[in-house]
Amino acid sequence: MYRKEFYVFKDEKPIPAVIRNYESKDFPSLIRIQEESFPPPFPSELWWNTKQLSNHVNLFPEGALCLEVNGEIAASMTGLMIDYDPNHPDHSWEEITDNGYITNHNPNGNTLYVVDIGVRPAYRKYGLGKWLMQSMYEVVVHLGLKRLLGGGRMPGYHKEADEMTADQYLDEVVKGNKKDPVITFLLRCGRTPVKAAADYLDDEESCNYAALMEWKNPYFTTNKDQKTNK
């Protein structure tokens, strides 16, 4: 199981933090993170419920991470394994994650797919999202997978939708001509764009688009001594 102890900083003061696998006792805190991280107009029915969280810890505990700051759960990140074909990248969040229940988790998959990442607003100056992303990269390396993949919201796109396509907006963000709260963050975390995916999620701010973005495992090899046959 995963556990990493380190320090985050607030006003130059170090504060102890831990990233670990979340458990059933953490469910109320994880639901609170969802409520605070994704307020309306984000659909409340997409917040976690206890059945979904139970599936996360039972089906793929390695992909169920939370981050504590001074003993308080402040952020979380969840993933599942899929067998991803780069030649057929199109999908929706609902189909790729089984609507967040991850019953389609594939232990023999080649890709760790990000189901969700959330940070409570009061902790968004601590760099927690980047710490969680780095930890999930470590899970990818540990499991010998090809990549981490996920769809990032494009909450700034609705302001530009009358002037450009989603792919054009994504390209402008990547070039640095525009900033997007989510996509720019993912770029800072080392993710690279694959494409803009239509009808990915019921998300008014993103006009239902998401940017599929990946991180390729630099240690991945197809040699026979590879830990897993992925």
Rank of each mutant, 00 (worst) to 15 (best):
Q168H: 13
V174A: 12
E204W: 12
G176E: 01
D202Q: 14
R153E: 11
K146G: 05
A161M: 07
D199K: 10
Y209S: 02
A197T: 07
V182W: 08
L148F: 15
K175V: 08
A211Q: 10
C189T: 11
N208F: 01
D171R: 06
T192K: 10
D203N: 01
C189Q: 05
G156F: 00
K175C: 08
K178T: 13
G151P: 10
A196Y: 04
Y169D: 01
G156L: 00
E205F: 15
S135M: 11
Y200L: 01
M154F: 07
Y209T: 01
E138H: 10
L149A: 02
H158T: 10
I183R: 09
Y169S: 02
K146I: 11
A196G: 11
D162P: 10
K175Y: 03
C189W: 07
F185D: 14
G152I: 11
N177M: 11
R188K: 15
Q168T: 15
D202A: 12
Y137F: 10
V173E: 00
L187E: 00
G152K: 04
R191D: 09
Y200H: 02
G150H: 02
C207M: 11
T165W: 02
F185T: 14
R191I: 14
R147E: 03
R191L: 13
D202T: 08
Y157I: 08
L212W: 05
E214Q: 10
L149P: 04
D171S: 15
Q168N: 13
E172G: 14
V182S: 13
P193M: 01
E163R: 12
V174Y: 03
L186K: 13
P193A: 00
A196V: 08
G152S: 08
R191M: 12
K216H: 05
D167R: 09
V140D: 02
Y209W: 00
T192M: 08
D167F: 07
K178L: 12
D171H: 12
M154I: 03
V174R: 07
A197Y: 09
P155K: 12
V140N: 06
P193V: 03
R147T: 09
R153D: 11
V141K: 00
G152L: 09
G190D: 00
Q168E: 09
E160A: 15
D202S: 14
Y137D: 04
R153V: 14
H158D: 06
R188F: 15
V182F: 12
D203G: 03
D171V: 14
G190I: 01
D167H: 08
T165K: 05
P193R: 00
D203W: 00
P181R: 12
L212I: 09
K195F: 02
T184I: 10
G150P: 05
Q168P: 13
K178C: 08
K175M: 07
P181E: 11
R191V: 15
K195G: 04
G176M: 05
A161F: 04
G176K: 07
G176D: 02
E204V: 15
N177W: 06
V174M: 06
Y157T: 07
L186W: 14
D203I: 04
V141C: 04
A197D: 04
M154P: 06
L149F: 02
D167C: 11
C207Y: 03
V139D: 00
G144K: 04
L148H: 09
V182T: 10
T165G: 08
V140L: 05
L149V: 13
Y137E: 04
V141Y: 02
K175Q: 05
Q168A: 11
